[in-house]
Amino acid sequence: MDARTCLIVDDSRIIRKVARRIVEGLGFEVDEAADGSEALAWCASALPDVVLLDWNMPVMDGLTFLRRLRALPGGDRPKVLFCSVEAAPDRIAEALAAGADDYVMKPFDGEILHSKFAEVGAV
């Protein structure tokens, strides 16, 4: 069986680094993108199993990326975890309505990410 893959999309290098360590610990191969546009280019060539997605990024934000991902052939397959400081219930509802599978508040730790991955059936 091929290794499961996760694309971490965040404009913060620090967040990507922390998330990478946690996600690799869950047994995933990890790729990183600094914004939604870069992430969409990744997904156009190879869809990951899971996308850990920041909301507020330059170039293309997380919500725009998510809508475009879901419109790609097979773009309904990756599990998408929105990962943001956005705590307003209407913003969370908007992310879920756009096709996110779950929502993770920043800051997160390994335990939180593991339980969220488990909830969406990724681990």
Rank of each mutant, 00 (worst) to 15 (best):
63 L>Q: 12
119 E>F: 03
39 A>L: 11
98 A>H: 08
89 P>M: 08
25 G>H: 08
18 V>F: 06
119 E>P: 00
19 A>W: 01
35 D>I: 05
33 A>E: 09
52 L>I: 13
99 G>R: 04
20 R>N: 07
43 C>V: 03
44 A>D: 08
114 H>T: 15
36 G>T: 08
101 D>V: 00
116 K>L: 00
82 F>Y: 01
33 A>N: 06
114 H>W: 04
72 L>H: 06
38 E>R: 13
31 D>V: 13
18 V>C: 00
7 L>S: 09
4 R>K: 15
43 C>A: 14
114 H>S: 15
90 D>T: 11
5 T>D: 03
22 I>V: 10
119 E>Y: 02
94 E>S: 09
16 R>I: 04
92 I>C: 09
61 D>L: 03
109 D>W: 02
6 C>F: 04
68 R>D: 11
21 R>H: 10
88 A>L: 13
24 E>R: 13
11 D>F: 02
82 F>G: 10
11 D>K: 01
8 I>N: 03
35 D>Y: 02
120 V>G: 07
5 T>E: 13
100 A>M: 04
40 L>E: 05
86 E>L: 14
41 A>K: 11
46 A>S: 14
100 A>N: 05
107 P>N: 10
48 P>Y: 06
105 M>W: 00
112 I>A: 06
90 D>L: 05
112 I>R: 13
61 D>A: 09
60 M>S: 06
85 V>R: 10
102 D>E: 12
14 I>W: 00
53 L>I: 08
114 H>G: 15
40 L>I: 04
96 L>A: 09
60 M>L: 11
61 D>E: 11
51 V>G: 07
84 S>L: 06
75 G>L: 05
43 C>L: 01
65 F>L: 15
4 R>I: 01
86 E>S: 15
17 K>D: 12
32 E>Q: 12
115 S>M: 10
102 D>C: 01
22 I>N: 00
1 M>Y: 12
102 D>S: 13
4 R>W: 02
92 I>P: 06
19 A>G: 00
103 Y>G: 02
26 L>D: 02
15 I>Q: 13
50 V>M: 03
42 W>V: 10
20 R>C: 10
100 A>G: 14
6 C>G: 03
11 D>N: 13
39 A>D: 11
42 W>R: 14
95 A>G: 14
85 V>M: 13
68 R>S: 12
73 P>I: 04
48 P>N: 07
93 A>H: 04
21 R>G: 12
37 S>F: 10
44 A>Q: 15
90 D>R: 10
92 I>K: 15
47 L>R: 01
82 F>V: 15
12 S>G: 07
21 R>P: 00
78 P>N: 07
99 G>V: 05
31 D>H: 13
123 V>A: 12
50 V>P: 06
122 A>N: 11
74 G>V: 08
26 L>F: 09
103 Y>Q: 02
22 I>R: 01
98 A>K: 08
89 P>A: 07
19 A>R: 03
61 D>K: 04
88 A>D: 15
91 R>K: 15
112 I>E: 10
118 A>W: 07
70 R>D: 11
49 D>T: 01
120 V>R: 09
3 A>V: 05
79 K>S: 07
21 R>C: 00
82 F>T: 12
18 V>G: 00
35 D>S: 04
105 M>E: 11
39 A>H: 12
